[in-house]
């Protein structure tokens, strides 16, 4: 092979083939789509905040009615220690109420699943309880639980456990009975059928309901703080309201949202950790 031939071949090799070009452009397009999707929410959020900022600044609406986001942010930074202290209180209430809701919700679901008698006895009563607007109970709860952690934990729990319970019952009931038969044919005990088949099969649905329950638990805790409290982000809101301090009020609202999103992300991480090695959803 002459030198010229070799060079020609090398040059030919440097030239990517048509297929390679098509593939790389396809890859590039896919990567671009992923980036667009990741950026979608933050960009939309930023646009909405920008509109808010412009409206609040230039429309002549008073700061007392609609403070500018920039002012709220400044306030959040300035009052950071205050907000953090009270956010911690609310966080404990939410996590406590939510945990109670999951434990009690799953426990009741299991008794309903395993006992037909308890199902017919409990279900109507639980549904009746669920139809009561929780806020209607708030004054009574203060009467019974006082001003401490009690009413917040209780409201947070009470507002969120139903979602966990119903979803868990449905998940357990919808498992094909063939799985249990199969396990039984291998000599499995009821406990083994529960741990090896029913619980892992129901886990995705339970996690789904936990996501609903968590957002409800936040509402319950703040509701409890509105009714009677000396601490927590709901209490900050009440204070801000009575001082006509709308900016602080907004700062507290945003803190609640951030707290909720943060806890939600923690739950997602826990779910992902427990579901490793499963078929990815989507």
């Amino acid at each position: 092979m002459s030198l010229a031939d070799g060079l020609k071949q090398a040059a030919f090799k440097m030239q990517p083939s048509k297929e390679e070009l098509a593939r790389s452009s396809r890859l590039r397009r896919r990567r671009r789509t992923v980036i667009f999707e990741r950026a979608a929410a933050p960009v939309l959020g930023a646009i909405l905040i920008l509109i808010w900022e412009l409206v609040a600044r230039y429309s002549g609406i008073s700061e007392f009615v609609l403070p500018q986001p920039s002012l709220i942010l400044k306030r959040m930074i300035a009052d950071c220690p205050l907000l953090l202290t009270h956010a911690a209180v609310t966080a404990i209430e939410v996590v406590g109420g939510f945990t109670l809701a999951v434990v009690v919700g799953v426990a009741i679901a299991l008794t309903i699943f395993y006992s037909r008698l308890l199902e017919v006895a409990l279900y109507p009563i639980l549904i009746a309880f669920q139809t009561i607007p929780k806020i209607a109970l708030a004054p009574l709860i203060v009467l019974y639980f006082g001003y401490g952690w009690g009413p917040k934990l209780f409201l947070s729990f009470f507002i969120s456990f139903f979602a966990v319970m119903v979803a868990t019952v449905v998940a357990f009931k919808s498992i094909d009975r063939g799985y249990a038969d199969l396990a039984r044919s291998m000599g499995a005990s009821e406990l083994q059928i529960f741990t090896k088949i029913r619980l892992p099969a129901a886990l995705p649905a339970i996690f789904g309901s936990m996501k609903v329950a968590l957002t409800l638990a936040v509402i319950g805790a703040v509701l409890g703080e509105y009714v009677a409290s000396e601490r927590g982000l709901g209490y900050i809101q009440l204070q801000a309201n009575s001082n006509f301090d709308t900016t602080l009020n907004f700062a507290a609202v945003i803190s609640i949202a951030v707290l909720g999103v943060g806890l939600y992300l923690l739950l997602l991480a826990a779910e992902r950790a427990l579901m490793t090695g499963r078929r990815p959803s989507r």
């Binding site: 094909d176 063939g178 799985y179 199969l182 000599g187 892992p200 078929r279």
Partner: peptide
């Protein structure tokens, strides 16, 4: 204890 069963559905645990 010495019987094995196969059903129409495979009933493999998906996880």
């Amino acid at each position: 204890p010495r019987a094995g069963v196969v059903f129409q559905s495979d009933y493999l645990l998906p996880w």
